[in-house]
C-alpha cells in the first residue's frame, strides 16, 4: 500500500493532486485548476482548464474577460478527473459561488475548505459539514480573540450612526466581491430601502449578484450623484483602498466605516482611520473554526493561510493530529 494521502501535496503555489495533474487554487497558471471561489488570491486567470461552480466562473469571467477552458460544476455534482480522482464541490458559505472541494482517491477523502464561514449569509448557500480523512482548513481569523458578533448587531450600529448624523454620509469600506453585497443585502433585510451609493469598482459585481438571484435594491453610482447633498444621510460603499483616497473627497464629510473581521481590534481600526468599525467577516471566527474541526472530525487537519500557529496549538491541546501548510499568496488584509 502507498503512503496515506501521498497523492495530494501542498506546494508553495497551491495544493497539487498528482494522479490528476490538477491544482486547487493555484497562484500561477496551470493546465488544470480547481477554484474554490472568485477572490483574487484564489482565482487567478490563465489556466488551460478551470473547474469551478458556475457562479465562480461568472465572477472570473467578469474579472479576466475570458471563459476559455471553463468547466462548470454544480454544488453536489461529482466530476471524474484523470488518475481515478473524484472531485465534488460543496457549499462553503463564504461568498457567491464559494465551494469546498471534496477529493476522493484510493479510498481516501480530503476536503479543502477554501475560505468559509458558518454564519447565515443571504447571498450564498450555507457551509455543509462533510466527513473526511484529511481536512484542509483556512485560518484567517485563527486566534481565540476573534468572535464575530451577529451581523444584525453591526448593521444596527451602521443604521444608528446614519440616524445620529444625518448631515453626513456613512462610507463603508468593503470587499467588492462578497462583503459589499452581503452588507447591502443585510441592510435591505433590516428594512433600509434608501438608495445605496456605490464606488464605480462595485457596480459590475453587484449586477452579477443580482443576475444570480440576489436582489440588492436601489443602487446608484456616487459619480452619478447630482450633488454632495444627495448623499447626506445615505450609505455609500467603496473598496477599502478607496476609504482614505482622493475619491472620498467627493462625499459630504463621510463617517469612515469598514466592514471587516479585523475591526475587532481597536488599534487596527485606528491605523486605518476608521471611525465606525463594523465587525463583519466572511471567514470563520475562532469558535467556528474549532467547532467545524470537531464536527468534521478528520483524522488529520492541515491548516493554511492565516494564523496557523494558534489553531495548530488548539489541535495539539485537543489531541488532534495537525500541521501547518506553507502556501504563499493567501492573505486577507481587508476582509
Amino acid at each position: 500500500m502507498t503512503v496515506p494521502f501521498s497523492w495530494i501535496r501542498p506546494e508553495p503555489h497551491g495544493i497539487y493532486i498528482a494522479p490528476a495533474d490538477a491544482w486547487v487554487d493555484p497562484s500561477r497558471p496551470v493546465s488544470r485548476a480547481l477554484v474554490t471561489h472568485g477572490h483574487a488570491d484564489h482565482a487567478r486567470g490563465g489556466h488551460e482548464a478551470t473547474l469551478a461552480t458556475p457562479e465562480t466562473l461568472a465572477i472570473m469571467e467578469l474579472r479576466y474577460q475570458t471563459r476559455e477552458g471553463a468547466l462548470p460544476v454544480s454544488y453536489g455534482e461529482t466530476m471524474r478527473l484523470p488518475g481515478n480522482v473524484q472531485a465534488t464541490f460543496i457549499p462553503a458559505g463564504h461568498v457567491l459561488g464559494s465551494a469546498q472541494v471534496l477529493l476522493e482517491h484510493a479510498g481516501e477523502r480530503v476536503v479543502i475548505t477554501g475560505d468559509y464561514k458558518r454564519r447565515h449569509d443571504p447571498t450564498c448557500p450555507p457551509f455543509e459539514v462533510t466527513g473526511c480523512d484529511v481536512f484542509i482548513t483556512e485560518a484567517t481569523f485563527g486566534l481565540p480573540l476573534f468572535t464575530h458578533p451577529p451581523i444584525q448587531h453591526e448593521i444596527g450600529k451602521l443604521l444608528d450612526r446614519l440616524a445620529a448624523e444625518p448631515e453626513r454620509c456613512v462610507l463603508v469600506g468593503a470587499y467588492a466581491l462578497g462583503k459589499a453585497q452581503r452588507v447591502i443585502a443585510e441592510l435591505r433585510a433590516a428594512g433600509h430601502n434608501d438608495t445605496i451609493w456605490l464606488h464605480g469598482a462595485m457596480e459590475r459585481m453587484c449586477r452579477l449578484y443580482e443576475e444570480h438571484g440576489v436582489p440588492l435594491g436601489d443602487l446608484r453610482l456616487v459619480s452619478d450623484a447630482p450633488s454632495k447633498d444627495a448623499l447626506r444621510g445615505h450609505v455609500a460603499i467603496c473598496p477599502p483602498s478607496a476609504l482614505n483616497d482622493r475619491w472620498s473627497r467627493r462625499l459630504p464629510d463621510p463617517v469612515t466605516a469598514m466592514a471587516s473581521g479585523w475591526m475587532m481590534v481597536r488599534q487596527r481600526a485606528r491605523q486605518r482611520g476608521v471611525e465606525l468599525p463594523l465587525v463583519i467577516s466572511d471567514h470563520a471566527d475562532w469558535h467556528e473554526l474549532t467547532t467545524t474541526i470537531a464536527e468534521v472530525n478528520p483524522s488529520e487537519t492541515w491548516i493554511t493561510h492565516g494564523r496557523e500557529d494558534a489553531l495548530l496549538r488548539w489541535c495539539e491541546l485537543h489531541q488532534r493530529k495537525a500541521h501547518a501548510l506553507a502556501l504563499v499568496g493567501y492573505e486577507d488584509e481587508d476582509d
Binding site: 481590534v265 494558534a310 491541546l317
Partner: peptide, 24 residues
C-alpha cells in the same frame, strides 16, 4: 484562564494587553 501559548499569540497580534484581555 487561557493556554499561555494562545495568550501570547493573541497579545502579539493585538499589541495591547488590556485590549487582548478584554477580548479573551
Amino acid at each position: 484562564r487561557i493556554d499561555p501559548v494562545l495568550w501570547t499569540l493573541s497579545r502579539d497580534f493585538v499589541g495591547d494587553t488590556a485590549e487582548t484581555a478584554s477580548l479573551l
